[in-house]
Amino acid sequence: MFQTIVPLFVDALANAALIFFVAFGLTLVFSVLRILNVAHGSFYSIGAYVSASIGLWIVSAGLNPWLTFPALLVSAALVAALFGPLIERTLVQWTYGRGEAVQILMTFGLFLILEDLQRLVFGVSSYYEDTPVALLGSIEIGGIIYLNYQLLLIALAVVALVAMRVFIGHTRMGRLLAVVVADREISEALGIDTRRMFTIAFTLGIFLAALGGALATPTAGVAPGLGADTMVLAFAVAAIGGLGQVEGAALAAVIVAAARVLAIYLFPALDAVAPYLVMLIVLLVRPYGLFGKPAIRRI
């Protein structure tokens, strides 16, 4: 029993860590900007492509292979710096105050553009760069072999969640974001530059999505279509946890990852639909998600 449950548990947590990063970014953007960013999955795949490209260059150039670890973080930062302010200040800003249909159509159009852009820049071949996994090796616990990289992913997800809570609760910028989330109109009346907060939140959301893609590359590689698959999965996690709820996204990521792992182990044919079955069950019981609450809508 131990040799069956423990590997499933570790695999579920490692998968949950990757899902959490992209769902975390999606949740953050929605909580501040009140926009469901359909293009969010594209930043995940772009982060994966950039990370794999930089990692392959480091290896081919004969540089220290341990540089592939900071390259994961640098890749996400580059994607966020390049796309975050540019897209928020142009396309996304144009949708503020408009209906949800306009926002979804705009971000979906952006998703299509970014998908084609990836094919133009990176081609249609798959990229594989597993140097970080090879460097960290594996560990044996109770006769079971685990990748140390999987354990690192779990730790990084926990660090990200704690760091965000510290940022929101103990820094001036974080408190300003919290005020904007609570009430946008009062924030503007108090003199808070909400447009600047929107840009920061959107860029940070892109960074988290790109970081998830970068961290996933050493274990799974990257191929065309990854953004679409990730986008749908991230929406499922955000819906289960409750839109705008960070803790909900963390718990939902664990639930979805556990459902996928159990499906692969027990019912392989249900692997692709397991997350959405979980979403259906949760939303039937709690339409606003596990942590979501009904809210009064201003008209």
Rank of each mutant, 00 (worst) to 15 (best):
R298M: 10
T27F: 11
A80F: 14
A220S: 09
L156Q: 11
T219Y: 09
R89H: 00
M164I: 07
F108V: 07
D11C: 01
R196G: 01
G221Q: 06
A81G: 11
A263W: 05
V124N: 01
I186W: 08
P70I: 01
S51A: 14
A17Y: 15
F20I: 14
Y44L: 14
W94S: 04
G137D: 09
Y96F: 00
V158S: 02
A189I: 06
I186K: 12
N15V: 02
R195A: 01
I255H: 02
Q3R: 03
I281E: 02
Y149K: 03
P268L: 09
T203D: 05
P218H: 06
V133W: 15
V273H: 02
E88N: 01
G221I: 05
L91T: 13
A160S: 06
S60V: 10
I87T: 03
T90A: 08
L152I: 13
Y44W: 08
A210V: 05
G62T: 08
F83P: 11
V32R: 07
V159G: 03
T68C: 01
I240G: 05
A259S: 11
S187D: 04
G84Y: 01
Y128L: 12
A295R: 05
R286N: 07
A101L: 15
N37K: 06
A295P: 01
T171R: 13
L277I: 14
L176W: 02
G221D: 12
A263R: 14
N37W: 05
L18D: 05
A201K: 02
Y96V: 00
P85H: 02
A209P: 07
V282A: 09
A61E: 05
R195F: 07
L13E: 08
V180E: 07
A234M: 11
L91C: 04
M173C: 03
W57Q: 00
S60G: 00
L153Y: 08
G84Q: 00
A274C: 14
R89T: 00
L161R: 06
A163D: 03
L266A: 04
G62E: 02
R298Y: 12
R172E: 08
A295W: 03
N64D: 08
A81N: 10
I299D: 08
V79R: 01
A77T: 08
L91H: 15
A14K: 11
V285C: 08
Y49S: 13
T171Q: 11
M1W: 08
L284R: 14
T107M: 12
F291P: 12
V32H: 04
V261F: 05
R298F: 13
H40W: 12
V222A: 06
L112G: 09
R260W: 05
L283A: 04
R260S: 15
T230Y: 06
F198Q: 00
V246L: 14
V246K: 15
F167Q: 09
I200Y: 10
I186E: 15
L13Q: 12
E129W: 12
A252T: 01
L211T: 11
I299A: 14
F20A: 13
L176R: 04
A210W: 05
V10D: 14
L208D: 10
N15D: 14
D130P: 13
A39P: 12
M1V: 12
I144N: 02
S45M: 15
Y265V: 05
I299Y: 12
R119Q: 10
M279Y: 00
N15A: 10
P294R: 08
I296A: 10
L280W: 09
A220Y: 09
A163H: 12
V162Q: 05
F21N: 00
